[in-house]
């Protein structure tokens, strides 16, 4: 699995605002990779280019062994006419039923399956939304702040479990949490804010797996590299 951007230039339609100019990078999958950068730097635009929602750009965007890309974000909602458990049942094939139950349990959502989406906390909403994406057929899943408002311990548990359960999938994790991306992601594309010489750089993260211990030195180095690039 591979994702490569070659000299991508993109401007918001009808404006002179350049979001990317000659942006080039490569990421290899499967695994957890990240997009990192200050707000408004173009992370979501880049994700939308990947899903095909934005096609008004120049340059080459190539993928290898990635046919189905899904994009989830943290403001998504489930319809309010039935409980979240019912919604999950409806979007799951019979073969996926065991996986659904496993994910619901791992994400700590079992007690809330009978609740309506509007009755959940923000973190619970994001977890239930992410579960339904993980139950779909995909090669790449873009998680745009998909675990926002989830506490740190639960978030860590969820990410490690996703890595263990979906070893053959390509994840792009969009987050503003520098420790998290440094810890759990392999290739981190850092999109720089205005005033930086290099518009983007790929930094190698620690790519922590379940059962592995954290290399503090490596983590600190990664975080420094990201800070310098951003």
């Amino acid at each position: 699995m591979q994702l490569s951007f070659n000299q991508i230039t993109f401007r918001y339609p009808g404006t002179d605002t350049t979001v990317f100019e000659d942006l080039s990078f490569q990421m290899a999958g499967p695994g957890f990779n990240a997009l990192f950068g200050p707000s408004g730097v173009g992370k979501t635009s880049l994700a939308r280019m990947l899903t095909g929602d934005l096609d008004d750009f120049s340059g080459q965007l190539q993928t290898r062994d990635i046919d189905r890309i899904l994009y989830s974000y943290n403001l998504e909602r489930l319809p309010g006419w039935s409980a979240v458990g019912k919604h999950l049942e409806r979007i799951t094939t019979p073969e996926q039923q065991a996986k659904r139950e496993q994910l619901v349990d791992l994400f700590g959502m079992t007690p809330f399956l009978g609740s309506r989406f509007s009755q959940l906390s923000l973190g619970q909403k994001n977890r239930i939304n992410l579960i339904r994406y993980l139950l779909q057929d995909f090669q790449m899943l873009i998680m745009d702040e998909s675990l926002a408002n989830v506490d740190e311990l639960t978030r860590e548990k969820i990410i490690l479990n996703i890595k263990a359960l979906f070893p053959d999938k390509f994840f792009i994790y969009i987050s503003h949490n520098i420790i998290e991306v440094s810890k759990f992601c392999r290739d981190i594309l850092v999109l720089a804010g205005s005033g930086k010489k290099r518009p983007a750089a790929v930094v190698r993260g620690q790519d922590l797996q379940a059962g592995q211990s954290l290399e503090k030195q490596h983590l600190e180095t990664t975080m420094l590299e990201i800070m310098n690039a951003a």
Binding site: T51, L70, Y71, S72, Y73, L75, E76, R77, L78, P79, I91, N129, R132, Y133, Q136
Partner: peptide, 9 residues
């Protein structure tokens, strides 16, 4: 915010 998932899948 609701339709995105269904459209995407």
């Amino acid at each position: 915010d609701i339709e995105h998932f269904y459209r995407n899948t």
